[in-house]
C-alpha cells in the first residue's frame, strides 16, 4: 500500500489594499499608501539619480540618455499598439520629423535648443497626425505596413530631391549649455510623458480611446467618431516620438537621414515585449535593459546581435507577458502552496 498521492496547488490572493466605494479610493494606513507609492517613487528616483550616478563617466551618461530616448519611443509604440490598437511601425517617422523640424528651427530661425524642441514637438506632432490621417481606417498588420512605409519614403524623398540638406543633413546645431541641463531636460521629459500618458488612459477620454481597440463598431454606435479619436491618440503618441527625435539631434549637433532609420521603429517593439505590453512603464524598463546590454555587447563585434537575439528570444519564450506584468502580479498578489484535499 502506497501513501495516497499528495497534490499541491499554488494559491494566489490579491492583496486587499484598495477599497472602492463609488469612485473613492480609500486607503487605510500609511503602510498602504507606501505600498502604492513605493514602485512609483522607486522608478522616479532611479531616473532622477541616474545623471548624478553617471556623471563621472560621460560615455555612460550618453548611454543613460539613449535609454530615455528609446524609452520615449517605446512608450509611444506601447500606447498606440496596446491602448488604441494601432500597431505602428512609424516610430522612426515621428522621430525624424521631430529631429528635422528642431534642426530647421535652430539653424534657420536661430531658436535656442529648448524652444526649438518645444516647437518641433508640437508642430511635428501635428504634421505626423495629418500625414497619418489617410491610414487611420486601417487596422492590424495593414496599419503596421503602411506606417513602416513613411520613414522609408522620407529617406528616399530627401535623397532624390536633395531637400532638407540632402544626404548630408544639417550640421552645427546648437547643443545644450551643460551636462546637467542635457541630462535633466530629457529625464524630466520622459517622466512627464510617462506619467501624463498613464493618467490620460485612466480618464474618461482615455477610456474612449481604449474602447476603440476593444470594439470600434460600438464606439461608432455611441455617436463618437472613431477616426477623430484615433487621430487624437496618434497626436499624443507622436508628441512623445517627436520630442525624442528633437532632443536627440541637439545632443549630437547634427541630423541626417539616419533619423528615419528602421531601427527606431523596431527597437521599441523589442523594448515593449521585454518590459511588458500595455503597461507604459514596462517599455521604460525594457529600454533600460536593452540599451546598456547592447553597449556591453559592443566588444563581441558581430556576435553582439546573436547574444542580443538570444536574450530577446528568452524573454519571449519564458516571460512572454513581459517583466512589468510579471512584477505587478508578484507585488499585488500573495502566493502560497496549499494541499489539495
Amino acid at each position: 500500500m502506497s501513501e495516497p498521492f499528495k497534490q499541491r496547488r499554488r494559491e494566489r490572493i490579491d492583496r486587499g489594499v484598495k477599497v472602492r466605494s463609488a469612485s473613492i479610493y480609500a486607503l487605510n494606513s500609511l503602510e498602504e499608501i507606501g505600498y502604492l507609492l513605493a514602485p512609483r517613487m522607486l522608478l522616479t528616483c532611479c531616473f532622477l539619480f541616474m545623471p548624478l550616478a553617471l556623471s563621472p563617466w560621460p560615455y555612460w551618461g550618453r548611454v543613460g540618455l539613449s535609454v530615455c530616448i528609446l524609452a520615449l519611443l517605446s512608450i509611444s509604440f506601447d500606447f498606440l499598439a496596446n491602448y488604441v490598437g494601432l500597431v505602428s511601425l512609424g516610430g522612426a517617422f515621428f522621430y525624424g520629423i521631430g529631429g528635422y523640424i528642431s534642426a530647421i528651427c535652430n539653424t534657420e530661425f536661430g531658436l535656442p535648443p529648448f524652444l526649438a524642441i518645444l516647437v518641433a514637438t508640437i508642430l511635428g506632432a501635428m504634421i505626423c497626425t495629418i500625414a497619418l490621417l489617410p491610414c487611420l481606417p486601417l487596422r492590424g498588420i495593414y496599419f503596421a505596413i503602411v506606417t513602416l512605409m513613411y520613414p522609408l519614403l522620407m529617406i528616399r524623398l530627401i535623397e532624390a530631391f536633395d531637400i532638407l540638406g540632402g544626404t548630408e543633413g544639417f550640421r552645427g546645431i546648437d547643443g545644450f549649455n551643460s551636462f546637467w541641463t542635457e541630462q535633466y531636460g530629457l529625464v524630466l521629459g520622459l517622466l512627464v510623458a510617462l506619467f501624463a500618458l498613464r493618467r490620460f488612459v485612466n480618464t474618461d477620454a482615455g477610456l474612449v480611446v481604449r474602447a476603440v481597440k476593444d470594439n470600434d463598431q460600438s464606439v461608432r454606435a455611441s455617436g463618437i467618431s472613431v477616426t477623430r479619436t484615433k487621430a487624437k491618440a496618434v497626436f499624443l503618441a507622436s508628441l512623445t516620438g517627436c520630442f525624442a527625435g528633437a532632443y536627440y539631434i541637439h545632443m549630437y549637433s547634427n541630423v541626417g537621414i539616419s533619423s528615419f532609420a528602421l531601427d527606431l521603429s523596431i527597437m521599441p517593439i523589442a523594448a515593449t515585449i521585454i518590459g511588458g505590453s500595455g503597461t507604459l512603464v514596462g517599455p521604460v524598463i525594457g529600454a533600460a535593459i536593452l540599451v546598456p546590454l547592447s553597449e556591453l555587447l559592443r566588444d563581441f563585434g558581430s556576435l553582439r546581435i546573436v547574444v542580443y537575439a538570444l536574450v530577446l528570444t528568452g524573454f519571449v519564450v519564458f516571460r512572454s507577458e513581459g517583466l512589468m506584468n510579471f512584477l505587478t502580479r508578484k507585488y499585488q498578489q500573495i502566493e502560497r502552496w496549499v494541499d489539495i484535499r
Binding site: 474618461d204 477610456l207 474612449v208 481604449r210 476593444d214 470594439n215 460600438s218 455611441s222 455617436g223
Partner: peptide
C-alpha cells in the same frame, strides 16, 4: 458588442462621454 475588457459600468461611460450625451 460590449467592451469585453472593461467592467460593465465602464461600458456606459463611453456613450456618456459622447458629444450627444
Amino acid at each position: 458588442r460590449p467592451y469585453f475588457t472593461m467592467p460593465a459600468y465602464k461600458n456606459l461611460v463611453i456613450p456618456l462621454s459622447s458629444p450627444r450625451a
